[in-house]
Design a protein around this nucleic acid. Structure first.
Lengths: 198, 198
DNA sequence: TACCGTTGTAAGCAGCTGCTTACATCCGGG
DNA sequence: CCCGGATGTAAGCAGCTGCTTACAACGGTA
């Protein structure tokens, strides 16, 4: 109803919603590339082709921007994935994405941002907890939560080595090969669990 | 020969070597706590009880300080450990240290600093490569290097979850329990390797 | 047409960063 | 004693950070 009623291709000369969207996308990519602290609001605004004052008008603060990025990217993706596919999906995403434009780069944001006890940590922690709970239920063991943590640790560690440190041969390794190695190995972690807590 | 010849307990009012040492120790702890970028030269100098100008006189730059911290901490510890004990030693160190005063906090420095493509990355990469080479030789498989990367990824990921994110129950879990779970599971990674490359 | 809230802009603020400079002070060897 | 390098200090620099303010331009509505 309050939509564009003029421009042929839906382009408006002044369009708050579109500007907001561009800021969100630019922030998502820059947070994933440089981490929360590493990305500056000036850079984000520039990549979005917007004035940086608008960033604060629409999101209040840099921290508010992060919150919205995580909410729209990571949590949506999380809800859309059935639990039993969660780990492999996340691993594959971690192994393949690393390119601007991908919808869910929240795990990259996560691992590039948790370097110190800054503002970002709190916002990102919630995302991690959801993953943990879902994974923990997959293993029926009493220490399922611990094993879920260990699985997540491996997931993040692999992302760390691949996208941040860019260590070879991991960085260039075939995603399928890596995925199979990891999933097969982790199967033992789950089956050991069952053996201990029948 | 150019030593102290006065003070009873070896204390000198002006002692460059001691000041250097204090700066090095303070830097080691602060880098481990806040990461390379998060620790400021003012903080380091203050904790060392020294003037920050001395930091630049002795180490040239903040980056030079990091180089020396890694050289004295991580590499020494690395050389002192036989390869077959390397992974478990590093894992235990990661699970237990996290307290100021510990000699080797280089893995903490490592994982808290690799958040973006900054100066620290290059200096820290060498440390990682040494670990990889040593671990790769343990597995006789042709893709030993890849599997070594995966093991290191898990190691770092666990450190990330435990000391940085402080995720429960991993953060408070008994080091022995965690260590056994991980080492047992990784055994499958090594034995699978042997099966494939006999 | 005249108006007024929405959208966009330029400039600047205080605080922090790594690093440098100019200057006190110590202290051992001549 | 006393000089000169070694050691320690205070102040400041330019550049960056997140964020704010004052203002211009648009465009739907009355």
């Amino acid at each position: 109803m309050a939509e564009a009623s003029e421009s042929p291709a839906g382009e408006r000369r002044r369009d708050a919603a579109a500007t907001r969207r561009r800021l969100l996308d630019a922030a998502r990519d820059l947070f994933a590339e440089r981490g929360y602290e590493g990305a500056t609001v000036r850079e984000i605004a520039e990549r979005a082709g917007a004035n940086q004052a608008l960033l604060f008008r629409y999101f209040g603060s840099k921290q508010g921007l992060l919150t919205e990025v995580v909410a729209q990217g990571g949590l949506e993706q999380f809800r859309a994935t059935p639990p039993e596919e969660l780990f492999e999906t996340a691993l594959r995403s971690m192994l393949t994405s690393s390119a601007a434009g991908t919808a869910d780069r929240s795990l990259e944001v996560y691992l590039r941002s948790i370097g110190r006890g800054d503002d970002a940590t709190g916002t990102l922690r919630e995302l991690g907890e959801r993953y943990q709970r879902a994974l923990a239920e997959l293993s029926g063991a009493k220490d399922g939560a611990l094993r879920a943590d260990l699985a997540m640790a491996w997931l993040l560690g692999i992302g760390l080595m691949r996208t941040v440190v860019a260590r070879e041969p991991l960085a260039s390794a075939d995603p399928d090969t890596v995925c199979r190695l990891v999933v097969d190995t982790l199967d033992h972690l789950w089956s050991d669990a069952e053996r201990e807590a029948p």
